[in-house]
Amino acid sequence: MECPVALTSTDVARLADLARIDLTVKELEQFAGELGVVLDAVAQVSAAARPDIVPTSHALNLTNVFRDDVVRPSMPLADVFAMAPAVEQDGDSTWFRVPRILGEAA
């Protein structure tokens, strides 16, 4: 299969948006050039991938791994919340505090 190898800074901006990363204009331009070089170099990979080859996603032939569904102690909540960027507390309860998740202003 033919791969398009030229990436523009507009392409990179779209990908950065999908990946939820703010990039500076300088980064957009720099990455567009650099990633073009990488995609160029990996073009031979697509050329070697004949339709009859079975793809490998994992080196070990693993199927699903199951365990018994038993109650085990969880991590101490205080330790978990200690590293949170923001928490809210009410009596004995603690929550992660996150920015607004809906489109309208808070």
């Binding site: 299969m1 990996v42 990979v45 697509s46 070697a48 991938a49 004949r50 080859i53 079975v54 793809p55 490998t56 996603s57 080196a59």
Partner: peptide, 8 residues
């Protein structure tokens, strides 16, 4: 997909 085939 191609890379996974090369992995094979």
């Amino acid at each position: 997909g191609s890379a996974q085939k090369v992995r094979t």
